[in-house]
């Protein structure tokens, strides 16, 4: 592995941490398993590429965010107003967005940005040109992190976070949880779409299939981050999620370096998430086995009590 692959992994990790923060909002703070992500990620990329082709690369990020937020709000409405199960609501959106994304891209499965100004071109010709992706992505991430952190510390942010913990309490304390879910899913899918947009600018194209597996990548980042870096305070947790996304990218890069074909990536991702999700159970089983062993070694069993 050379320095360039490392840098590229870091860049992608930083961009994907937007997806991870989005997953963190839906999966953790709302406790809502949201599959809309697969569609809103591609939607963000598609919208952003089209707006960029029209000559507005920076505005395209905002457009992508808004488009993703709208998608998320529809999932929220399906689930809260029409009582469609969260997973199913997400699947419906994912399916519907496939057609919409094709329409956005002018009925093409693939649209490229080659020879167009993109968000990373701002540093072109300057001394830091080699790091333009790294710098731009880090700036965007920093802005998102700061805004999101302070938002989650407001009154509105508090009830949003409490919704996933205990929606009964949130309602009992006078807040409509239908609204907090709507807000949270909009925010979450907005971030996911922003991520899709920034990836499209990085790889210089949007592709109809690029969202496949994004739910899993988002979750993997959240879980890896939490396991490795802790969840003590909100800020620490958010930074952990970001680091989780970067670590995930590094793992993938290393796996590829070892000669694993790129087509096996999705399988690897699935396995990583399965392992990460089962960590608590495995830990518990191991502790139990340890106690059992210690107990038996101690001689007397507790069967009589």
């Amino acid at each position: 592995m050379n320095i360039y692959t490392l840098q590229s992994a870091l860049e992608l990790g930083i961009i994907y941490s937007l997806l991870a923060l989005g997953s963190f909002i839906s999966y953790r703070t709302l406790n809502f398993p949201d599959l809309t992500v697969e569609g809103s990620y591609t939607l963000g990329a598609a919208v952003s590429v089209m707006v960029t082709l029209a000559g507005y690369p920076y505005l395209s990020l905002l457009a992508a965010f808004v488009a993703g937020a709208v998608a998320g709000s529809i999932t929220a409405l399906l689930s809260t107003r029409l009582k469609i199960q969260p997973l199913l609501a997400g699947i419906l959106l994912m399916l519907g967005l496939y057609s919409i994304n094709l329409k956005v891209m002018g009925n093409r499965a693939n649209v490229n940005l080659i020879n167009h100004r993109n968000i990373y071109s701002i540093f072109e010709g300057t001394i830091v040109e080699g790091f333009q992706t790294l710098i731009t992505a880090s700036l965007v991430l920093a802005v998102v992190l700061i805004i999101l952190y302070f938002f989650l510390k407001t009154r509105l942010g508090f009830v949003l976070r409490a919704t996933g913990d205990n929606h009964v309490m949130v309602r009992a304390l006078g807040t409509n949880t239908d609204f907090t879910i709507l807000l949270g899913l909009s925010l979450s899918n907005g971030l996911v779409a922003l991520c899709g947009a920034m990836i499209a600018h990085e790889q210089l194209f949007a592709d109809i299939g690029m969202g496949i597996g994004m739910v899993v990548i988002g979750l993997a980042s959240v879980i890896i981050g939490e396991v490795l870096f802790g969840t003590n305070t909100l800020l620490r947790r958010m930074i952990a999620v970001i680091l989780g996304a970067i670590v995930y990218r590094l793992i993938i890069t290393i796996v590829l370096e070892f000669g694993m074909p790129a087509t096996d990536l999705k399988l690897i991702s699935a396995i990583i998430v399965a392992v990460a999700l089962s960590m608590p159970v495995i830990k518990e089983k191991m502790e139990l086995a340890g106690r059992k062993k210690a107990n038996l070694r101690g001689g007397r069993s507790n069967a009589g009590n």
Binding site: F151, T154, R155, L156, F158, V159, R161, A162, G164, D165, N166, M169, V170, L173, G174, T175
Partner: peptide, 23 residues
């Protein structure tokens, strides 16, 4: 209570019961 939030944050949510949930 919201178990994953702090004691202070829980009380704050309760205290904001009759106040607008804004920024």
């Amino acid at each position: 209570t919201a178990y994953d939030m702090t004691i202070a944050e829980n009380l704050a949510i309760a205290y904001a019961k009759d106040k607008p949930k804004n920024l």
